[in-house]
């Protein structure tokens, strides 16, 4: 009995070795826009989650929206578009986030709430018009210094 278990364990160990030696060197991650990321790739790979969480706290609690590791900026750079020019969700299969996350089997808890594509920017869009015109008019409050 124990011999059988040992044999199975040996087989398992061997199979892991085989998989790790069998040429596959990790997922192929789609390239983002521009030349470089906001920080070194190695640094980002290891720390993006902490940076995002910290940025999230900064934004929600302290109102600091211009932090370097803004989720919207990540999506802006790393999103890809289909043949019609429509953006593909960044967490869709084969896209920037999911290629790696699927490889390491870590679920992403960002895009149930956060937008997975950049905001639409068609000039005809109602809310964008509203937002932009509002921004342009800059309804300043009398009491502001």
């Amino acid at each position: 009995m124990t011999n059988t278990i040992k044999f199975v364990l040996l087989l398992l160990g061997l199979s892991f070795t085989w998989v790790s030696l069998s040429g596959e060197r990790g997922p192929v991650i789609p390239q983002g826009k521009g030349e470089v990321c906001v920080a070194d790739t190695d640094f980002m790979r290891r720390n993006h989650m902490d940076l995002l969480v910290h940025q999230g706290d900064d934004t929600v609690i302290r109102g600091l929206r211009e932090g370097p590791f803004s989720m919207a900026d990540c999506v802006d750079c790393h999103v890809r578009h289909d043949d019609q020019g429509k953006p593909i969700r960044i967490d869709a299969e084969g896209e920037f986030c999911s290629t790696c996350h699927e490889y390491v089997a870590v679920s992403i808890d960002c895009f149930t709430c956060h937008a997975a594509v950049p905001d639409a920017k068609e000039p005809g869009s109602a809310h964008n018009n509203d937002h932009e015109s509002d921004k342009n008019h800059r309804h300043r409050l009398a009491e502001q210094p």
């Binding site: 934004t59 109102g63 600091l64 929206r65 989720m71 919207a72 999506v75 149930t112 709430c113 956060h114 937008a115 950049p118 905001d119 809310h127 509002d134 921004k135 800059r138 309804h139 300043r140 409050l141 502001q144």
Partner: peptide, 28 residues
């Protein structure tokens, strides 16, 4: 969702007084 207003299933939400506009610093 819009990038300025993250919201998703299973959480509670309410009026934010448009914090993203407040934080914009442009007195929107």
């Amino acid at each position: 969702q819009l990038s300025r207003a993250p919201r998703g299933k299973g959480t509670v939400e309410s009026c934010t007084l448009c914090v993203h506009r407040i934080d914009d610093g442009q007195n929107l």
